[in-house]
Design a binder for these strands. Structure first.
Length: 874
RNA sequence: GGGCGAUUAGCUCAGGGGUAGAGCACCUGCCUUACAAGCAGGGAGUCGCUGGUUCAAAUCCAGCAUCGCCCACCA
């Protein structure tokens, strides 16, 4: 890249990392050079992820942003490990959602879909999709998502339709799909049946109405209902067989008030005798329990509520009323009759349409169902036996529990936008199910065929995503190479709707699981702990966050929020990411500008070089272990602390001494290593913060990092001795700094100190004399008597006597405090080691550690006591 | 009704049998030639409550409380 990042002017002047321009430039380059695209390559292992396809009506929200960051980290990470990584991207045609959006648009033009007719309407939806359907894909790019955009798929594209049709026909031929007249969840507003999973229960206030039904031949029975209007569809009354209050009336006939319909009184165990009056009105056409009881007892069904949500002709005088109005009228009329015995407040949960919020009307209609019994067993087994793993694990148990209780899936929708069922009817009502339009009825040969108008549930097609996107039903090279995918990352809200069904379909049609791992990410709530939602006004637009802080910062912050539990959105974490990107950028500026002309080369000559290399290896190990178990917070945390606390705060400061020094050979060695180290860091960090790392790598000619390798784990680069040595150096500098702060010694004042202690420590400190000068503003001497008014600073391996300008009385008080603290530690340690049970039963390492601690506290105490005695005496 | 999760510093959250951690916020001092979006230092918590196991519990177990989520044919 030449502009504007060529030469050192750019580095010199850019003291802050400015994401906006950098991001756009890099995304363009990655795309122009096809760096995200993968083709099957037998020489490399495949790593594949399919994105949960967002709805074409969707815009990027915080959940996507987190999920896509996770997938991008994994994709970039594995790509740099040398795997052939393909992150497959695409969109979902989203039946109801999309149809609703286009209908709303038509309404603004004063049109309904009926005005246009089906064909024209569907054409309008395609048009809408061409114009707006790609929005979310463009938004993905803002985040830096390295999807294989050249493979973009759509759940309604040509090849996908073939896959859906093939699956439907195959399942029909196997007898898993059938048509039935059954009680389904009907949304009167959307005008379609929906599946159980698309029903949301919401707590609402309501009333429990006790209604008296007279019994033919004398007596009465009182039932209780929350929906009085459904009595218009009653065909029976049921009581529990063991309920002694009602044994006498079972078998008799009750009379439905208002309509006069005769109702059988039946006994059924599904009635709860403790609820209400113990007598249950039976409306087989509008309640699932009633429907089942009706089937058992051969009861008539009366449809009192129509698909438009209004009372039908069966409701006599109430016909044509909306249910709410009907409820009011029925209640009033019952009251007038004296049949309404009691009305009590009764809050209960109401079934509503998950998509539009309208109360669901259970009613009987002709629908297509998929029987899950055969499909669910293998799909449950693979999770039970660990072939497919869930992270966090608990979602696997949730999945299994749900699978164990599966009921048939209602897959037909009375919509216009979607995969039309490949089913044709002849005038005699025979069915012909075929992949391509048949010429004649398979049963009677009639050529007058009409196609089923229903379309499939959107989730039917989504279930095929992991294999249909790689070319199935064709046996393509892509499919052979990239399937099964490695991991599916998604939110927990679609475990049942989508994940479960992909596993079932993958096993059925590919005879293989669709993915090895399922990673369920956290739900990001609004900062106040409420749901992020547009209607509540609690949503935060990730694009705004990117605009404000940059994509790297947004990714970093989101990864910090990728917990195993729900978390609140935290602006501070994003700001932390921004600060980190800036810190990294500035560290890179320092290294690159301060070592110009030197070539990157790892060195193990200097202790400090071996130390930072070793610390890097530990960070690398931590990152690899964290990513392997999808613990992105731990990965990012390890990177942050290594880069900031160790690389920037210590390494960079430590190498300033040789770098600004006169020893040219030493300087060359340190400079080379610093450049090498920076390159290692940037490679390790790239999957997490792709933009800033590319921008840095560009400055020394290593870009694009997308083509580079991940740093290599190497046990031989670990250096425990050097870590210990530098650790002690850090502790000594810290002690001096603490002393300076406590004694309020001005930063500019240079202190002189005499070291007394063991020889090894003396040698080490002498070697790092420059470090003490630079980082603690203290010059060290290793011989001679300390002055009598010197202050003692305890450091590893001995004591520093600092010629200090502080009050003797204050110094005595300070030492007394330190002594008291040391004494307390000694006593604690002695008590612990004097405890036979502790010494006898605690692990040896714990006891040893305790002994070492005690010894060091004893030494510290004795040193302080001696010093105190000297001060008091002098 | 069943299940799951959470309860740790002022805030947001990690951790997890062996002397309590991070970021932000706060206090003090510094524009020290990579970075003031910075540097150095500091204060701050009976780890929700009650029991139990253990030499040792924030951590494991049981119960309780509060909050949240999911499932359910709560007439």
């Amino acid at each position: 890249m030449t502009d504007p990042s060529s030469g050192t002017d750019y580095l010199q002047q850019t003291t802050r990392f400015e994401p906006a321009a950098v991001e756009a430039r890099w995304m363009k380059r990655w795309l122009d050079e096809h760096l995200f695209h993968a083709e099957p390559d037998p020489d490399r292992p495949a790593y594949s992820i399919v994105i949960p396809p967002p709805n074409i009506t969707g815009v990027l929200h915080m959940g996507h942003a987190l999920n896509d960051t996770v997938q991008d980290v994994l994709t970039r990470y594995h790509r740099m490990l040398g795997e052939n990584a393909c992150w497959l991207v695409g969109t979902d045609h989203a039946g109801i959602a999309t149809q609703n959006v286009v209908e709303k648009m038509l309404r603004k033009e004063g049109l309904t879909k009926e005005d246009l007719g089906r064909e024209e309407f569907v054409a309008r939806v395609w048009e809408w999709r061409r114009e707006y359907g790609g929005t979310i894909i463009e938004q993905l790019k803002r985040l830096g998502s390295s999807c294989d955009y050249e493979r973009e798929r759509f759940t309604f594209d040509e090849g996908y339709v073939r896959a859906v049709t093939r699956v439907f026909v195959a399942l029909y031929d196997k007898g898993y799909i059938h048509k039935d007249s059954y009680l389904v969840n009907w949304c009167p507003r959307c005008g379609t049946a929906i599946s159980d999973l698309e029903v949301a229960y919401r707590d609402m206030p309501g009333t429990l109405n006790h209604i008296r039904y007279e019994i033919a031949g004398g007596g009465s029975v009182t039932i209780a209902t929350t929906r009085p209007e459904t009595m218009l569809g009653d065909t029976a009354v049921a009581v529990h067989p063991d309920d002694e209050r009602y044994t006498a009336v079972v078998g008799k006939t009750a009379v439905l008030p208002l309509l006069g319909r005769e109702l059988r009184i039946v006994a059924d165990e599904r009635v709860d005798p403790s609820f209400g009056t113990g007598a249950l009105k039976i409306t087989p056409a509008h309640d699932l329990t009633d429907f089942d009881i009706g089937r058992t007892h051969g009861l008539e069904t009366v449809q009192a509520i129509g698909q438009d949500g209004r009372i039908t002709a069966a409701g006599g005088p109430y016909a044509g009323l909306e249910v709410e109005e009907a409820a009011a009228r029925v209640t009033a009329d019952l009251r007038a009759l004296g049949a309404l015995v009691k009305v009590e407040d009764y809050p209960h949960s109401v079934a509503t349409c998950d998509r539009c919020g309208t109360p669901i009307e259970p009613l009987i209609s002709e629908q297509w169902f998929m029987d899950m019994d055969e499909l669910k067993k293998p799909a449950t087994d693979v999770v039970r036996d660990g072939t497919v793993t869930f992270t966090p694990e608990r979602w696997g148990r949730v999945y299994i529990d749900w699978m164990d209780n599966l009921r048939p899936w209602c897959i037909s929708r009375q919509l216009w936008w979607g995969h039309q069922l490949p089913v044709w009817y002849c005038p005699d009502g025979h069915l012909t199910v075929a992949e391509t339009e048949p010429q004649a009825c398979a049963t009677c040969g009639s050529t007058e065929l009409t196609r089923e108008t229903d379309v499939l549930d959107t989730w039917f097609s989504s279930a095929l995503w992991p294999f249909a996107t790689f070319g199935w039903p064709e046996q393509t090279a892509d499919l052979a190479y990239f399937y099964p995918t490695n991991v599916l990352s998604t939110g927990r809200d679609i475990i049942f709707l989508w994940v479960a069904r992909m596993i079932m379909m993958g096993l059925e049609f590919m005879d293989e699981i669709p993915f090895d791992d399922v990673y369920i990410h956290s739900v990001i709530q609004a900062p106040d702990g409420r749901r992020m939602s547009k209607s509540l006004g609690t949503g935060i637009d990730p694009l705004d966050v990117i605009d404000e802080h940059g994509a790297d910062a947004t990714r970093f912050g989101l990864l910090l929020m990728s917990s195993t539990q729900d978390v609140r959105f935290s602006d501070e974490k994003i700001a932390m990411g921004r600060g980190f990107a800036n810190k990294l950028w500035n560290a890179a500026r320092f290294v690159l500008l301060g070592t110009q002309g030197y070539a990157a080369e790892r060195s193990d000559v200097a202790e400090v070089d071996r130390w930072i290399t070793s610390r890097f290896q530990r960070c690398l190990a931590a990152v690899e272990e964290a990513v392997a178990v999808y613990d992105f917070t731990a990965a990012v945390d390890a990177l942050y602390h290594f880069v900031w606390d160790e690389f920037c705060d210590w390494y960079v400061e430590l190498i300033k001494v040789p770098l600004y020094g006169e020893d040219e050979a030493k300087k060359a060695q340190v400079a080379g290593h610093a450049r090498w180290m920076l390159d290692q860091i940037v490679r390790l960090l790239h999957p997490f913060m792709p933009f800033v790392t590319e921008e840095i790598a560009e400055q020394y000619g290593a870009a694009p990092l997308l083509r580079q390798q991940h740093p290599r784990r190497d046990e031989e680069q670990l250096a425990a001795d050097d870590e210990k040595a530098i650790g002690e150096l850090q502790a000594a500098v810290d002690a001096l700094r603490r002393f300076r702060a406590e004694a309020e010694i001005p930063p500019g004042k240079v202190l002189a100190a005499v070291f007394a202690g063991d020889a090894a420590a003396a040698e080490r400190y002498e070697h790092h004399a420059g470090v003490f000068r630079a980082m603690a503003r203290t010059t060290l001497a290793f011989a001679g008597e300390p002055e009598t008014d010197a202050t003692v600073v305890v450091v590893p391996g001995g004591r520093l006597f600092v010629a200090a300008a502080i009050d003797k009385a204050e110094e005595i008080a300070r030492l007394e405090q330190q002594l008291a603290r040391a004494q307390a530690e000694v006593e604690r340690g002695e008590a612990k080691l004097g405890n036979e049970k502790f010494v006898g039963r605690a692990p040896e390492a714990v006891v040893t550690k305790e002994r070492e601690k005690l010894a060091s506290h004893v030494a510290e105490r004795d040193g302080l006591a001696a010093r105190l005695a000297q001060l008091r005496g002098g």
